[in-house]
Design a protein around this nucleic acid. Structure first.
Lengths: 330, 330
DNA sequence: CTGTTAGCGCCTTCAT
DNA sequence: ATGAAGGCGCTAACAG
């Protein structure tokens, strides 16, 4: 069913139908009624692809995520879709499965006017990324990493990490193990580590390399890294840079016969949904990923409508969730 | 940059450029080289919207999910995107937030040729749904509910539920509480309940209404429903129809001073990622949601390519995950 | 083998 | 206030 068919049925021209549909231009009331009646009768749906071609905008937002099946990503997508819907937009998902080539391909693909704006959840941002992003004609917002010259939305990783470490110290902990990830991920790998290191130093404690381990993002890695540390030292507290790593670490401790938090306290970052239902409930930092997603989408729309200029870096808030996984040993 | 510009730069006609890009028709080698060279030089990306309009296919799959920020949905989407990518397709997400009107709107919207096929995660399927689905011109696969006349992919909810109940009985449990959800969701609300009821009866046990409670899907509901049951009876085991409900129930038990599984055993269904990391690790049924998503996408492609006919109902497998949350009291 | 032409469905001047 | 016409970028049919 095309606009032409509606026109014929309503006894008007296609232009009139278009005017009615888009509420623009003058149409005599009776003709408008006639058109609307036909539209309702046949349940006419305009072809959005043709509209896109004509109007040079697709009413679609692209979201590039490293792994959709993670809680973080799905919360972000949830936020983005919510805002997109409010603007009458659809959301196109590009799931890269942590493949950098894929990420670059999608950037290219999405740029050829098939979406009006892009939200990219950043992990590792390479020079290749920047090269492609330079040529982008549609607005892009990077979520989770600060990228110079581009609009970014970041979590206050440094401050969160610092405060978490400070909290452990305030509870009397001095031997605080650190379970981190590769420096390729600047926000999680570098900035969170710096928050930890600076806080340790600022409080006059010694940085102990033997208490530190670096690995991947999954629960299993947390388990292994914890064991690696335990071979050398027994900390009184463990700071893992994600909740999943914290869960893995907790299990390593339990398997070795340590009690949490009686013998060793454990904290994470991220506040996954189940954090408070774990046993013991996990002390962590609550990042508002859904809110970040919403914010990213809002900012993309601002950029699309040119009511904001490219290059800003916004920071979201966080909240320390103090739960039973930390024991005061002071 | 349009095909016309490339043509000019390469000294050929737009048609030739098109032929080169799509590898169809004959093009003299030297012209092909020239075209490819220009394409590479300017990093030309064809306008996918124009292609869609011309070719009458968008190379996009629509996925309608009740709530993208759930583990189930994101795993399904992950599976769908994986298969879509392999077919050179993009995935459009429609997140309905459990709103039936939204679901119907999206069905209509997606049908006007803006996607080539639809995967819908079903919860409640109403007559309105069927009415709209009847008019659909693109193939649709419903995931999670069996809908007569439509292609569906379902989990073996009856058998899973029956086996889970039988397992509890085999461990010596007789007073098995049931925490379910509304019958509006046929698969979870009706079929899983029937599996439980039939199994109880088949084993010569009494169905006890006081051991049963019905609520929503969230953790908090599980908590409340468990408390409601505890006011009347103390079961030796609790069967919750989702893992989240099981988690809520567990916490209600713990808060009332019961130990799990020493005093009361608890089981769920779904096998969320953290199920095995809970304390105690949760006995549950593993559904392969990502695989279901993949299967759904494959079937949609089959329907698109007409190598399969509409109306089949496929069933996925499941696996009982026996973990420490159940105690043998025989 | 290659170029010209027409048209996918819509919207927007321009003319009436 | 309305209709006719052209064009968004691409491709398939036709002609040469």
């Amino acid at each position: 069913m095309r606009i032409k068919d509606i026109a014929k049925l309503a006894g008007v021209s296609p232009a009139t139908v278009s005017r009615v549909m888009n509420n623009n231009g003058y149409v005599k009331d009776e003709k408008r009624e006639a058109v609307l009646k036909v539209i309702k009768e046949v349940d006419y749906q305009p072809n959005s692809i043709a509209k896109s071609l004509k109007n040079q905008k697709s009413h679609m937002l692209g979201v590039i995520v490293p792994k959709i099946s993670t809680e973080t990503a799905s919360r972000v997508v949830s936020g983005v879709t919510e805002v997109a819907k409010a603007h009458g937009y659809q959301v196109l998902i590009a799931n890269t499965d942590l493949d950098i080539e894929e990420e670059i391909n999608y950037l290219k693909f999405l740029s050829n006017k098939s979406v009006d704006g892009i939200v990219m959840m950043g992990t590792e941002i390479t020079d290749r990324h920047l090269e492609v992003m330079d040529k982008l004609t549609v607005p892009i917002v990077i979520l989770g990493q600060e990228v110079f010259g581009y609009t970014s939305i970041i979590h206050n990783d440094y401050e969160a990490s610092y405060q978490m470490t400070a909290y452990l110290i305030s509870q009397g902990h001095k031997a605080i193990a650190f379970i981190g990830v590769s420096e390729k991920d600047k926000a999680v790998g570098v900035i969170r580590k710096n928050g930890y290191l600076d806080c340790i130093k600022d409080h006059g404690l010694e940085v102990d390399e033997e208490l530190m381990a670096i690995g991947d993002f999954d629960i299993d890695t947390g388990y292994q890294m914890m064991n690696k540390v335990l071979e050398k030292k027994i900390p009184t507290a463990v700071y893992a840079v994600t909740d999943h790593l914290a869960i893995g670490a907790t299990h390593a401790l339990l398997d070795k016969g340590y009690r949490v938090p009686e013998d060793v306290s454990v904290v994470g970052i991220g506040d996954i949904k189940l954090a408070e239902y774990l046993n013991p409930p996990l002390t962590t930092v609550h990042y508002t990923f859904k809110t970040s997603g919403k914010m990213a989408a809002e900012v993309v729309f601002d950029l699309i409508h040119r009511v904001r200029t490219k290059g800003e870096c916004l920071m979201t808030t966080f909240e320390l969730k103090k739960r039973a996984s930390v024991k005061n040993i002071r």
